[in-house]
Design a binder for these strands. Structure first.
Lengths: 104, 104
DNA sequence: ATGGTATATGTCGGATATGACATACCGTCA
DNA sequence: TGACGGTATGTCATATCCGACATATACCAT
């Protein structure tokens, strides 16, 4: 993992191990996080493709602007569940969702 | 949706609409549920491929037998999150996960 | 500067998911 | 039949997630 990525993750609340257990992420954990980040990016792209603001998107998702922001930021408080449901609600195809995940 | 599928879903606690709103699932909701079911099947296949019991799998996942059963049953109390994390923990590749999702 | 719009971050109460336990339901074998 | 290994179902306390709100930051106009 690149140092920059690592720092970013730590800031967001991910338990990326301390110095002692540097790189303490198991491959599965890393993979899971990357999936989430991939879905985050897909969500932002989907929103921007339709020229929507986060506020508009939030309304469409029956959620709030702050949660949309967190989703796009890959915040540790958002689940894959929410990301997938949101993508689908914004009109992304299952195929597109799969593609995002696969690229992780 | 086939009637059998519907009955199965209702039993598991899915809010598959009442008679008045028959087929009241939006395409996204239906799609989301199908993804979960696809992942459930993948999980069972992954487990069986390695000739593991649910108890053994539970230990590997640091969970319980009952939760593994619910995961494989597509119970409404299990999230896509858990399914994905479990599949990865059992050694499934991101590619395989994506494939399951895509087929939904 | 001041206002306006878009996005980001922090926090919190209520909602949902999770692991664990108990228990029920199979098959199969002695 | 009864015992046993495996799976399913029901429930519960706790942990985690979610929507919402407040507030902060950033950029662009006037």
């Amino acid at each position: 993992m690149k140092a920059a990525t690592r720092k970013k993750l730590e800031k967001k609340g991910w338990k990326v191990g301390s110095a002692a257990e540097l790189l303490g992420l198991t491959p599965e954990e890393a993979c899971y996080i990357e999936m989430k980040l991939a879905l985050s990016r897909a969500l932002r792209e989907q929103r921007q493709k339709h020229r929507l603001t986060q506020v508009q998107t939030a309304k469409q998702l029956k959620s709030s602007q702050s949660r949309v922001a967190k989703m796009e930021a890959g915040d540790s408080s958002v689940s894959i569940d929410l990301l997938v449901r949101s993508l689908l609600a914004l009109g992304a195809s299952p195929k597109a969702v799969a593609k995002s995940i696969q690229s992780a």
